[in-house]
């Protein structure tokens, strides 16, 4: 009964919106106005099939490599810098400034240096995602609990053991926050870099549809971007709930 109620709460409004949208655009002839039925139709007839492999897969590949590299480098560097007061002090203002530069600004420069192929796009995604992960990791390491740090010291854990058993798990909630913030940035930069200059990819194809006034396929492409965003957010939440089960459990307990 309770599950049923939750389900109805979750589905009621979306269903209502789609119905209103569908009814409202039924007799619409303006090609710029998207219709839900048409959009779904275009999604399956235009995008599903070869176009998916040719345009969407390369996009996802760039996204995956760029984001993955940012996660690995961000966490590693963050743990190292965060553990040293000297390194933190040296890098603080410099990082603060670099972070403030909107990543798309680097797009023209990267294109110039690395060319129009995958490398410039992957590197842009990497650079854009690096900062939230790196800075959150540094903060996470810096703000580990002092009592727990002393406990770890008294039991003689140093170096690698200290990182593995204490610093990394203690910083993990902040690391996950960093990754969560990096996800939308990764998608944005993926799409932007393809819209700006590319030979293939989701963003490239959507702009092409727009320029050739194929509104239906364009709308369907935008729907795919939205679906990727939602899917990644959902997937991340699953992983986070699993990895940080202890963290959320503890917070639940503290609230009571």
């Amino acid at each position: 009964m309770k599950a049923l109620k939750a389900l109805s709460a979750a589905l009621a409004l979306p269903i209502l919106i789609v119905i209103v949208w569908w009814l409202g655009t039924m007799n619409e002839t303006n090609p710029f106005v998207p219709k839900p039925g048409q959009m779904l139709n275009d999604l399956f007839t235009v995008w599903v099939g070869p176009l998916m492999a040719e345009q969407v897969v390369p996009s996802l590949y760039r996204l995956g490599v760029g984001l993955g590299a940012a996660i690995i480098v961000g966490i590693t560097l963050g743990l190292l810098i965060g553990a040293s007061r000297l390194a933190r002090a040296l890098t603080g203002p410099a990082f603060e400034f670099i972070r403030a530069v909107p990543p798309p600004v680097l797009l023209p420069v990267l294109l110039l240096i690395l060319g129009i192929d995958d490398r410039s796009k992957i590197f842009l995604i990497f650079l854009g995602c690096l900062w939230p992960i790196l800075l959150n990791t540094i903060d996470g390491v810096r703000s580990v609990d002092s009592v727990l740090a002393d406990t770890t010291s008294t039991y003689g854990m140093q170096g690698w053991a200290r990182f593995r058993w204490f610093v990394f798990p203690a910083a993990l909630p902040r690391i996950m926050t960093g990754i969560r913030l990096a996800l939308p940035i990764a998608i944005i930069l993926m799409v932007v870099s393809e819209m700006y200059a590319a030979l293939d990819g989701l963003g490239y194809r959507i702009m092409l549809f727009k320029q050739t006034f194929q509104m239906g396929p364009m709308w369907a492409g935008i729907l795919i971007i939205g679906l990727i965003g939602i899917l990644m957010a959902g997937l991340f939440r699953l992983v986070e709930r699993r990895v940080l089960a202890w963290y959320y459990g503890q917070r639940e307990m503290e609230k009571q």
Binding site: V191, I225, G226
Partner: peptide, 8 residues
């Protein structure tokens, strides 16, 4: 919320 703004 997660729909990327640039898609628009």
């Amino acid at each position: 919320r997660p729909i990327p703004s640039v898609g628009l």
